[in-house]
């Protein structure tokens, strides 16, 4: 069995474990990225803890996680259930809602930045010309995180809906028919048949959402670069800024360790749930 797993194991060791260990090690050194690293002990973690920007970035990661555990998941679940009930519309609607997922992140970011939110060239400008007083949410430190989240939700929820629909289609048709014969409406069917029927997929997507939410980078970097005034800064942009603009790779590695910690916690929860499920089913 070990021989069978060896190729995958070797690749994982080389491209995941080794860089991970090096990043973890770098968190304990002062290093500008080109010179000789110097041992720093816990100084990078102490400096990070003393930096208010780190705490606001961490808070933003939690807000982002909360948003993505609810808004796109709810939209996707409702859409998936609706599509399950309306098989004729499935192909067309699935293609449309999946489309944002295949558009490059950079393109999506620029579309929202320049063609929607921009007060010079976007829909916001068009509305302002017609008497609506709307400001660019990306320019407001208290709203920029939510504005970028809206962009990412637009890009993400269709994919989730397709995943949930695939899972729902595995539910026995007999079970759904039986529920209907018993008089279950859409909400009752949704609550008592569909959601329990896709529970493993739902939990997996929720866990992955937590992991991805602590790694979020592209949309924020492209659309706001963490600003204005750190309003949309998250741990990944915090780490990137330290590594590549401030020449402080050790501090960036420390931030990366915190990001990984949350990912590890989410993975541990997933494994625990799997073990619990296995125990219950045997």
């Amino acid at each position: 069995m070990w021989l069978f797993a060896l190729p995958a194991l070797l690749i994982n060791i080389c491209i995941i474990l080794v860089p991970a260990v090096l990043t973890f090690t770098a968190a304990f050194f002062m290093w500008d990225g080109v010179g000789k690293p110097a041992w720093a002990g816990l100084a990078n973690f102490q400096n990070m803890a003393a930096d208010p920007v780190f705490w606001s970035a961490l808070t933003n990661n939690f807000i982002w996680t909360a948003i993505f555990l609810t808004v796109p998941v709810c939209i996707a679940l409702v859409m998936a259930a609706a599509l399950l009930m309306a098989p004729n519309a499935r192909i067309v609607v699935q293609s449309i809602i999946f489309l944002p997922r295949i558009i490059a992140v950079a393109v999506t970011g620029r579309i929202f930045q320049g063609m929607i939110f921009s007060p010079a060239t976007g829909i916001v400008a068009w509305l302002n010309e017609r008497g609506f007083s709307i400001s660019d949410p990306l320019a407001d430190p208290d709203r920029s995180l939510y504005a970028v989240a809206a962009v990412d939700i637009w890009h993400w929820w269709g994919f989730l809906a397709v995943v949930f629909l695939s899972a729902m289609r595995q539910i026995s048709v007999d079970q759904i028919e039986a529920a209907r014969l018993d008089g279950a409406g859409f909400l009752a069917l949704f609550r008592y048949v569909l959601i329990p029927g896709i529970r493993p997929t739902l939990i997996l997507m929720l866990i992955l959402t937590v992991i991805w939410s602590f790694q979020v980078f592209e949309f924020i970097f492209i659309v706001t670069r963490g600003g204005p005034a750190y309003g949309s800064e998250v741990l990944a942009t915090f780490a990137y800024r330290h590594a590549f603009f401030e020449g402080d790779v050790g501090q960036a590695a420390a931030a990366a360790c915190v990001m990984s910690l949350f990912g590890l916690c989410a993975t541990a929860v997933y494994l625990w749930l799997q073990i619990t499920d296995d125990a219950q089913s045997t």
Partner: peptide, 19 residues
């Protein structure tokens, strides 16, 4: 230098926006 300049760029937005 790098970190000082990064703060100069990022931090001034906090000043302008009364943070």
């Amino acid at each position: 230098p790098g970190a000082t300049n990064s703060h100069l760029i990022e931090g001034i937005e906090q000043v302008w926006l009364n943070k």
